[in-house]
Amino acid sequence: MKKSLVLSLSLFTVLGLAACGTENSGSNENGSASGSSGQENWTPQQSLEIVAPSGAGGGWDTTARMAAEGFESEGIIDKGIGVVNKEGGGGAIGWSYIAEKAGNPHHMFVSSPPLLLVPLNGQSQYGFEDFTPIANMISDYGAFAVRDDAKWDNLNELFDDMKDNPEDITVIGESSPGSMDHIQFVKIAKAAGVDPQSIKYVSAQDGSTMTNLLNGNADVYSSGVTETIEQVRAEEIRVLGVTAEERLEGDVVSEFPTAKEQGIDETFVNWRGFFGPPDMTEAQISYYEEKFKALSESEHWADTREKFAWNEMYMDSGEYTQFLKEEKESMQQLLNELNISGG
């Protein structure tokens, strides 16, 4: 009886280790092959993997899947592309997975502002500096909505009221304090002179945000632009301001005023782009830049953007890195003022 256990186990490990060995040597070969194939031209040696650091169905997952689909159906990349979900830690699990793939540029992940916010909140040991920004693809913006019968007609009235009676105004959003929905509101409100710490923010992560705006438990809803459209059409809510630089294009959204045109000189971009593991070579970066640019400029992708109400925002690796540096600084400042950091 004992014998069969020992036998089973040893068989299992031997087979397993043997398998491990072959896998490792395999990937090493790939690595060296790609290294020696020259600095100027690099092409993938195996199928590619895009990690969505979240579960199925979210924004990251959709972007990753649509990009993979675009690359394949437009014939931009002829290798197979698999999308893998690595959920957990608000993205941290997926990021550390890619960080371990240093030197194997067949893996990428898709990300957005949480890649800056989560590490700043002390919840991930990896930040964008630990990866290779490849290209940004799309952007999205925040919207601040109130009930249709609310007393405020524009952002300035809301913010003025907030300065006087901060405890009477509840802001609700999907994400936890110190994350996206909270920060985008704080960023604009602060530019209008509201004390960030006085803002009463409630997080509702179970899909009840809109309900709570409509039934009066919350007064302001901080969310993405798309989430508000239908209720605006039904005249249940009004959007007081969006965080974009200029007015958005589209049926209902073009009527949303920006914070900027109301004299509040601040924006918030929900960018979304792709990152590779650390230590990618110039040749590898430029290979991907070219492919992502081709995708971004294709009819197919324009169609996808329209369907999901995304905006075009292509940045190559250099621009992207610079952009991320600046974004990170401004987030850091906001979080410091909110007294949430390093938790």
């Binding site: 304090p177 110190g178 949430i340």
Partner: peptide
């Protein structure tokens, strides 16, 4: 995991796998 209302991490022992 991360407390939804304050963003404080609770009882995770520094393990990122437990954050959510």
């Amino acid at each position: 995991g991360i407390d939804s209302q304050t963003g404080t991490t609770r009882f995770t022992f520094g393990n990122p796998n437990l954050l959510e």
